[in-house]
Amino acid sequence: MSDWEPKITAFLCNWCSYGAADLAGVSRLQYPPYFRVIRVPCSARISPKFILSAFRHGADGVWVSG
């Protein structure tokens, strides 16, 4: 399990989580390189369709935050 590299699709709200991910960078907090961010204008933009689509396209996990 330790060498498993999950594929995570992350939907981050431009105003909070996306900014937080930027700040994590400013603070040089290191974390595993397995998620790919899709910036959205608000977590309200996330439709259940996106989440299911991400899974349909092979995501192991979907992260929504806002």
């Binding site: 259940p48 369709k49 299911l52 689509s53 349909r56």
Partner: peptide, 20 residues
């Protein structure tokens, strides 16, 4: 959003979204 076939992934997508 959903494939037209009866692939289990597509079928599940249909049922979940319909329910939502």
């Amino acid at each position: 959003w959903v494939g037209k076939s009866s692939d289990p992934t597509d079928t599940m997508t249909f049922h979940l979204l319909r329910a939502y």
